[in-house]
Nucleic acid binder design. Structure first.
Lengths: 166, 166
DNA sequence: GAAGTTACGTCAGCCTTGTTGACTTTCCAA
DNA sequence: TTGGAAAGTCAACAAGGCTGACGTAACTTC
């Protein structure tokens, strides 16, 4: 359909067929992306929602519940259910804020860190294999396209992670 | 941690931190990836599951129920619930097989094609914007990493799509 | 032609994870 | 002191996964 080359460079990569392949690649790759943690979690009483909470608490120790709410993009009731079981099971500690006692600052316990490690080891192993197979240049492109695909607010959160801690 | 360069080339792209960023990029990008179709679907009685069915029926017209089952990786009860509503609402037609009358060959009706177009226009628009922003070289890398991330069986299905039709 | 297998549909029941709405408690800040 | 933000809780519900069991038609094999 659109295979003219207005600039010097071919725009064949923007054809509907190429875009469709990209869409399907996202679909199948995301299945692989979540497969390993899902396997570890099944049988334990946890699911993907617990994994996400654990991941971002690990990433930003001391983060508050509402921070987490924003990052995960779910309702507080949904998050609360997940968080409650993690606290009950002793994987997450919710410390009352010192300056603002309404806030709960979230930390992984030793037990929580153990599960986090198990989950992220599995997920990183797959990423590492994929990165290695594709090479550094491909990885750069991978990250560029993914960033461009995010909603602007999410992109800001993604880029701002790491400063997000307590 | 692993910043030595055993081959000529830097392996900094394989550090845990880089891998973690990649994991988070997948998470946030997938949210963006599904956001537009989700928005269109909400309010109609359909969800992401209907979208996936419609997508792959469009992609491989005449595909059978069990083909779809394999591609989507869900149970037949799950798929059936979705398919039933799509057939009832006149978006999908299930034709009894000519050679093997046990099979149902799935096709989109005109109405189904209309919704498919609306959904994929939105999703492609986002992909196109991302592709354009990142450039053709980045897109190549993007696809390479995603393919490497898939489970081998899924990768074969991904690559084999397009031949999958009736 | 009988027996077994395959493809599909369906009933019933369960789980996770999301939603909305209403309400309370705590506590900071104007 | 009062308004509002942060957090938690209860109840109810929906989508979309899952398992297990069962039925039927049609194809395949002996």
């Amino acid at each position: 359909m659109a295979d003219q080359t207005p600039s010097g460079e071919s725009l064949l990569f923007l054809t509907d067929e190429q875009l469709r392949k990209g869409i399907e690649a996202m679909f199948f790759a995301y299945r692989g992306f979540t497969a390993d943690p899902d396997r570890i979690l099944e049988g334990m009483d946890y699911g993907r929602a617990h994994h996400r909470a654990i991941h971002f608490i690990h990433r930003s120790p001391g983060t508050t519940v509402s921070n987490l709410l924003t990052i995960l993009g779910v309702t507080k009731q949904s998050l609360n259910r997940v968080l409650r079981t993690l606290v009950e099971d002793g994987l997450v500690e919710a410390r009352v804020g010192r300056r603002d006692k309404r806030e709960r600052h979230l930390h992984l316990t030793a037990k929580g860190q153990e599960l986090e490690r198990e989950l992220s080891d599995a997920q990183r192993a797959r990423m590492r294999a994929a990165y290695r197979a594709a090479g550094p240049q491909a990885v750069t492109g991978f990250r560029q396209v993914l960033e461009a695909m995010m909603d602007p607010e999410l992109r800001r959160q993604y880029q701002g992670l790491k400063e997000g801690g307590a």
